[in-house]
Design a protein around this nucleic acid. Structure first.
Lengths: 344, 344
DNA sequence: ATCTAGCACTCTCGGGCTTTGAGTGCTAAC
DNA sequence: GTTAGCACTCAAAGCCCGAGAGTGCTAGAT
């Protein structure tokens, strides 16, 4: 942990906040700075020089003002960040969006992404849990013509997943209902991730004639497990990023947008680094991925059915309005948990 | 319809194709042009002057070469476009992606978007039909605790849509199965768009105690109808656009990306203008929406279950490789129709 | 009648120059 | 420890100019 005397602390905070506001390097004679700190430019200069020595500020070139480094933002976020509660109107807007009509969970998460992007004016992302993170509620095998059926899994959160499967020879349509009922009864409440091969095997007895059918189900789940690492991501409000001056350089914009839109695995894995508790901030080069080095993430988990279900967050430039971002993410995550925990 | 003599025709084609290749204004002394046309620059110049007069070419400034106008591209596409069949390898790649494992329709469309973007190197978009465009296959009401049920609609293409609804007082869990069966039987095969209020009403008898439940179903469908205009869109390969020189200007890029990503309704409505048959090309200012004036769309419909189900297409700069784009879109749409028509 | 060559003209682009001014670091006085 | 003064540095902006690309026009060749 870095130690800062009161003066440097004040200077760091002022520089960071002013830079966040203006997007320009901040000089020692800057008006807002002088007013806020009430000391002479020379004094500010010496503090700045110290902060630069510590690696918290930097200089684009000799005659420019100071700009926070990623480490500078880190210290700011860790030590100097004050809460900036959302306005009453904003809270209401969020609650209205999320508390509205009983939607499907997917709709709800879409709306969360939407409102978060709108309020924070950055790109938002919601990672919805893969199948395996959810609890098995029921399986329904629905006849779908000759030798084919639609397998529908319903999860604890009310999500519905269907997939057509081919029936083994010798399984009639009439068996499907019975089979559905048996499987549902036996597996209800299990985490889908826990449905290992053996577990499924035991459900209907080993040498059963349903073997082939179970195999299909298993393949389905396994496939979903494989893509489980990269959760399903919903990204919204990308337009806000393009307004930020740091993303006006086309190469930077391209890199970031690729990471957000086309290579979802990058963002997904970056999000996976978030701890379960609280609001997590990852700044610039702290991100595991090169592509996100111009960005910061502000992320929080949300809960459904009493368990951590996914994460919701913001992506912005490192020069991000962390106060607002943290407040918005926290509020949305909390509301989301409230709604989802209630319905599960 | 514009009339062009052979010379102008050849010059227009050469200019358009060279500009597409190089992204630069094309001068009358341009090497490729002279070689291709085999006449002197002066001759080319006079043809160009004529084409400019007709509004098919333009001049960024006095001493620059010519650039096609939107109308120029239009004439090129309508009169001068030759087929450029995809390579064997590309066809195979597309077929592999689309013919693979029996996926859910949604997965299939995602893959179509993916492979199309990869092959054409532009952004791709796939519009999947709204619920109402599909045929009703079955309804299942699945108990979901106290007074609540999950209504699952299965459509002809095997798509699954679920939504929790609240049961009217006096409807027990046991009734649900029976009710599901009745509704399924009566409605099977109907187009969801045709499920009008009266139609639903008749299904279980008028003053029925299921009234409230039907009301919920109806609301669901109606809601989907409302959002039916904007189909569900899957956009991929946006990164390719950012590589194009015309999208390097941040304001242009912002406008286009907003239209593609955040304001799906814009793209959706633009796509809705596509006719059902063949490959449709919409160039720059021909697009209904201001935001897309820097873009061209190349779009074709695909069929499922014997009916037009949705559209698939590309979004690129007006300086687009139309030959490739048209070939790729046509091929993907055809393969998609093949697969979807087969499984429906 | 069409094409070509020649030529004067226009206008953008890029390089190199200078000026400007913001911001710094240092030193010495308070 | 703080402040004022001052010389120094360096990017950004403006400016000028030459180079070069491309044009349109006209007169002559085919």
């Amino acid at each position: 942990m870095v130690h800062l005397d009161a003066r440097r602390r004040a200077v760091l905070r002022a520089v960071v906040e002013e830079h966040i506001r203006s997007a320009e390097p901040v000089g020692s004679e800057h008006r807002a700075l002088r007013e806020q700190l009430g000391v002479s430019p020379a004094t500010i200069r010496s503090a700045m020089a110290g902060l630069e020595e510590m690696g918290l500020l930097t200089h684009p070139h000799t005659s420019a003002g100071r700009v926070p480094t990623d480490r500078g933002y880190r210290v700011y976020v860790d030590m100097l960040l004050e809460d900036e509660p959302l306005s009453q109107a904003e809270r209401q807007a969020i609650r209205r969006q999320l508390g509205g009509a009983a939607e499907t969970p997917v709709d709800l998460l879409d709306q969360a992404a939407h409102v978060l992007a709108a309020i924070a004016q950055y790109a938002s992302v919601v990672a919805t849990p893969g199948l395996r993170q959810q609890r098995f509620q029921a399986l329904h095998l629905l006849p779908l013509g000759e030798q084919r059926a639609l397998a529908v899994i319903i999860t604890g959160t009310g999500a519905v997943q269907g997939r057509p499967i081919t029936l083994p020879a010798g399984v009639a349509s009439d068996d499907l209902d019975e089979l559905s009922r048996v499987i549902t009864q036996r597996l209800q409440g299990s985490l889908l991730a826990d449905l290992t091969d053996e577990r499924l095997e035991r459900v209907v007895g080993e040498a059963s004639r349903y073997h082939q059918l179970l195999e299909a189900l298993r393949a389905w789940l396994r496939r979903d497990l494989a893509r489980g690492a990269r959760l399903r991501l919903r990204v919204e409000g990308v337009r806000h990023l393009l307004r930020e001056p740091e993303f006006r350089r086309p190469d930077v914009a391209t890199t970031v947008l690729e990471a957000l839109l086309d290579e979802e695995s990058v963002l997904g894995q970056a999000l996976a680094a978030a701890p379960g508790e609280g609001v997590w901030v990852s700044i610039g080069t702290e991100n595991r991925f090169e592509e996100l080095r111009a960005c910061s993430l502000v992320v929080a988990g949300y809960r459904a059915g009493g368990r951590l279900a996914g994460v919701v967050g913001l992506v912005g430039p490192t020069r991000m309005r962390y106060r607002r971002a943290v407040a918005a993410v926290r509020y949305v995550a909390d509301r989301l948990s409230e709604v989802l925990d209630a319905t599960a």
